[in-house]
Amino acid sequence: MDIEFIRESIPLYAEAAVLTLRLALLGILGSGAIGFICCLLRTFRVPVLKQAAEVYIELSRNTPLLVQLFFLYFGLPRIGVVLSSEVCAVVGLSFLGGSYMAEAFRSGMEAVPVSQGEAGLSLGMSRHQVFFYILLPQAAATSIPVFGANIIFLIKETSVFSAVALADLVFVAKDFIGMTYRTDEALLLLVIFYLILILPVSAVCALIERRVRYAQFGNRSIVSGE
């Protein structure tokens, strides 16, 4: 191990990590937005758009991010749609993550008993009010662990960004291996930096998950219907 080499390389890795983190954050926000829109379309059974959402979800869940990115980055420019690497990465990650988030919302919504919605309606609330004030808060709370798992999954998926010419962690590591043959150092830094990116997120998720489980505001005996 060449400590000097490692010390000198850290800034480059750090820069790459910041890029990864920035794109991941945007992608996760995009995923959440798409997932939420799909949830709205499904809940309110918006004709045509709901079916479109179902098709999108299946396409997104059953194809790899790498192929999605290649299509966006190399394919689309050929029909006149030119996207920068960064835009491709964010769009691709959102396209992938949106369906995972949509499924998280769905499982949460399914866990809320129908009778909760009826109780809201019987108080004269509109369907929108019932959704935003009664169903969504309960569904989101139930889905927190799944959201957390999805976020970690999406951060890991960013590792393919190097394939569309982004100088992310994998890109930097591969560069060092190719140019300097310092494989050990390059790989060690790669692992360490991914740990720095993912471990805190995973720890926070575990913490929130535990808190949600113990401080359930939901009385689940209502769910089982007794």
Binding site: S115, A119, G120, L123, Q129, Y133, G218, E226
Partner: peptide, 26 residues
């Protein structure tokens, strides 16, 4: 008004929030 067999209070709200939600919102 309707009262249900399984109460159907909203579990994510306090009792006060439960009874005040609809008067304020609706």
């Amino acid at each position: 008004g309707m009262v249900f067999q399984n109460y159907e209070l909203f579990p994510h709200m306090t009792i006060l929030e439960n009874v005040m939600l609809a008067p304020l919102l609706v």
